[in-house]
Design a protein around this nucleic acid. Structure first.
Lengths: 236, 236
DNA sequence: TGAAAGGCTGAACCGTGGTTCACTTCTTCA
DNA sequence: TGAAGAAGTGAACCACGGTTCAGCCTTTCA
């Protein structure tokens, strides 16, 4: 029995896989999914085309994995930032929206690719999954708000989906045009937009600009924006 | 000079063009842009592939024109329904949102194709144009609301874009799953969502459910939903 | 009626980029 | 060391669907 898979070979296999995936992520970050060709990835990661196919069964699977790799930490950040910790639903939604927007404008090409670029069905289904993920995170916060008596009873899933869509759509224009003019104002507008959308319990006054003035919430959100957009894949 | 283009030949040319375009629209309405192939269109309209190319320089141009043909009347309806006529900005936005949603759920496959299906760049750019169109219509209403002192000063273009994106995103899930369960509730939720989003002038109470109870606005919107989704192309 | 000029036809063409596979190189272990 | 088998290579392959074009048909008008 002259050959057997060992820890070393396994590590090498994983290293090569990470190398390829990381390069593919770089390609997408730089030029979107339109720039993602098996040839480019192979060349960029210093292997032959065939090798790519040793680690990924098809380009579609590779692209979907790139999408997931880029999307996961984003969703995690928003999840973390909106975690239940005694804040009001409004504050939590605002924090999530701000994190979402700040990270998008910080990496516009990648954000456009992930949010809006035309992609093949495999990636599109990952995108749907991601959107559902954001929707669920926001919906959970809305549920908490309803339970706590802060918000009126409403269809939280639909409203959450609309929030996600609203943020995405309002960001796509600026992201596409590379318009870096006054990102802060854009983010502020969108955070306020999300706050306005929340169906207030009748009788309670509308809450305006709560989280903008304070420094506590801002610190959290700035931290979020500064996190890397994906884990360093080179580290195995 | 034995041949000259005449009214009759011109009419025939236009008839063939309409025939092809109409068939392409039917194909998209039934199966989305993924089902749109030059072969299918040629077969469906009873001409040869080459003939399609006599009337449209490329498939991309044909697809873009299909998109425009389907999109134009939609935008017109929303424009008409939101026209300035003494109503409050809130009422106008609600009417526009309701018309948009009702027409989308009335033709789900086409709506999904127009709003969310992955498409080639030529169609995508038409889609961007359409979204800008909706955004501008809503933004104009918001401007009016600000001028009239009904709404607080805000970035109307961004908020309008977010409204459009919110409606689209919240509709895509239901449209894709063909879930016809309780369309009215969905529409009502989204109309209320749009109303909530409007930045109230400080001091004025939040306006809830204004347009849902009355009968006047409803009549307008039902009319809108019943309009054909595109002009009968067979009629020349 | 017939010459001129489009229009129509559809089988063949073609470009692109993902995918394959025969071959080489490398790793393991008796 | 050498046999066994995995990993890597990259030129060739191929599928697909948009696009073309030489030949035929239809319309126009002197």
């Amino acid at each position: 029995m002259p050959y057997r898979a060992t820890d070393q070979t396994e590590a090498r296999r994983l290293a090569a896989r990470h190398q390829i995936l990381g390069c593919a992520l770089d390609v997408v970050s730089a030029g979107g999914y339109g720039a993602l060709s098996v040839n480019a990835v192979a060349e960029g990661s210093g292997v032959a085309v065939g090798t790519v196919y040793r680690h990924f069964p098809s380009k579609a699977v590779l692209a979907a994995e790139v999408f997931r790799t880029a999307a996961e930490p984003e969703l995690e950040v928003v999840t973390a930032v909106t975690a239940a910790d005694g804040r009001s639903a409004g504050q939590r939604i605002a924090a999530g929206a701000e994190a979402f927007c700040r990270r998008a404008v910080a990496a516009p090409v990648l954000a456009y690719a992930q949010l809006a670029e035309p992609v093949d069905p495999a990636v599109e289904s990952e995108r749907l999954r991601l959107r559902r993920g954001y929707r669920d995170v926001f919906a959970a916060v809305l549920e908490d708000g309803v339970e706590a008596g802060e918000l009126a009873l409403h269809d939280t899933a639909t409203v959450a989906a609309a929030l996600v869509g609203g943020l995405g759509e309002a960001l796509v224009g600026p992201l596409a045009s590379g318009g870096d003019h006054n990102r802060d104002a854009l983010v502020a507008t969108l955070v306020q937009f999300c706050l306005n959308c929340l169906p207030q319990k009748p009788g309670s006054g509308a809450h305006a600009l709560e989280p903008r003035a304070g420094s506590g919430a801002r610190a959290i959100d700035d931290r979020a924006a500064l996190l890397p957009h994906h884990r360093p894949l080179a580290t195995i």
